[in-house]
Design a protein around this nucleic acid. Structure first.
Lengths: 240, 240
DNA sequence: CGTTTGTTTGAGGAGCGTCAATAAGTGTGG
DNA sequence: CCACACTTATTGACGCTCCTCAAACAAACG
């Protein structure tokens, strides 16, 4: 029921949170202090909505911990998962796109902690802090590149290849090494995966079962470990 | 054989070319003069490649006349058409995305005239000319929105609906009113359309034939007139 | 321990891609 | 101006993917 947990600047946030992250890489400690002092931090439960598509964009965000699922809904009620956000990344950066509403919904894929700032300070940030603008536009460029890749996959590849590509993307961007392979770091259902690949949970289930039998991966409820990434790469069609 | 026709600042370019275009909307005539004096203009034949995916991005462009097809190729040799550029729009704006290579190939869909500037002046433009940065990032935001729409279509809709949507998009963005409907303003083949919608030219041909029989559109070789846009909207699934 | 949420698996068939052949339109050179 | 090559479009036949429908099971949760 608890939709989101919002916080304030309770204790002073630690500067080390931002040091080294791309958008703030070139900044002095004092500048980071300034930035932090304007931020509010916020925790969100798994499944909680941080902001919704079409909402007036009054804040932009930096994910400190956890994972964010970026979701878009069709007029027909279906939904697709456009991407995932990993810790250290900005999200909800509508102002960078000249928008005043969020283009998609952000949902916590796992429990998250994020910082946020009012959009009003965006122009300060871009003008005052060296490298901030450059780095954020680079982020925009990268996301556009990912959209392009996904578009090409959907347009040209069969379900099996798209699924392999989606698993690899998650494993690369947000996987952690475990004993027997790479584990996707947040809970993910068959339904979720089908929303990423434009297919059905049934087809996803069948393919994952088959791959598990072949020793390519292991999966339990909402939980996937890729044990043989190389075979997945071959299946994704990128190989050869 | 003639791949592209390149020009110079032969005669002084006329200021009216830029007046009123979004990126330059808020500028004085003298500023527009400055900008034009740094531009080179260039004509490209139908089918000519203006720049290629992966090429070092040394120029950014403004389309004055004609239409540009933005194409991406898969490792497997297939290609998709990501979008079309209409007159008055910027393209090849890699610097706005923090990139130094072009993310896609630009091909003249019809004979085109464009202006271009070396990327080195990009940062001047954004800092010196009021509104230029804002407007271009708005363009980036819009294109990202279009990518999202297409992604959702590909992921959730059947071929018939995607095709209807693609035709409507072309008719809206680059259609001209003619006697019996809206004509798509540049030559387009069945193959081209299938590259936009992730299907085959055969399926496109079948559907267009059927729609022609139903009086929704008329088409001759490389040429389409939508006579009943409303029916197309219904077919695209956006209706209801 | 019942309810909810997520997963598995089968059967059947529709959508649309593949293969194949023909036709119609366009440009080029003699 | 005609013959030929090339590009573009049309249409049929066939069958494979993958979606739909259906049912049962397993895990989590209060």
């Amino acid at each position: 029921m608890l939709q989101q947990t919002s916080g304030r600047v309770l204790n002073k946030l630690d500067e080390s949170l931002l040091v080294g992250l791309p958008p703030f890489r070139r900044l002095e400690r004092t500048q980071i202090r300034e930035i932090l002092d304007q931020a509010i931090s916020r925790r969100a439960e798994e499944g909680a909505t941080v902001f919704s598509e079409g909402m007036h964009a009054d804040q932009f965000y930096l994910l400190l911990d956890g994972y964010i699922r970026v979701v878009k809904s069709t007029p027909g009620g279906e939904q697709i998962i456009a991407m995932h956000i990993a810790p250290g990344q900005l999200f909800g950066i509508a102002p960078a796109l000249g928008r005043d509403t969020y283009p998609a919904t952000a949902i916590a894929a796992a429990e998250t902690v994020s910082l946020s700032w009012p959009v009003r300070v965006w122009s300060d940030f871009t003008s005052k802090y060296d490298g901030f603008a450059t780095e954020t536009y680079k982020v925009v460029g990268e996301r556009m590149g990912e959209l392009h890749s996904q578009l090409m996959e959907l347009a040209t590849q069969a379900v099996e290849q798209r699924l392999a590509a989606a698993l690899l993307r998650m494993a690369n961007q947000s996987g952690r090494k475990v004993e027997n392979g790479i584990e996707i770091a947040f809970p993910v259902t068959r339904q979720n995966i089908s929303d990423m690949t434009g297919t059905t949970l049934h087809t996803v289930s069948r393919l994952l079962s088959a791959w598990q039998k072949q020793g390519i991966l292991e999966s339990t409820r909402r939980h996937i470990v890729v044990t043989d990434p190389h075979r997945l790469v071959l299946l994704s069609g990128a190989g050869s």
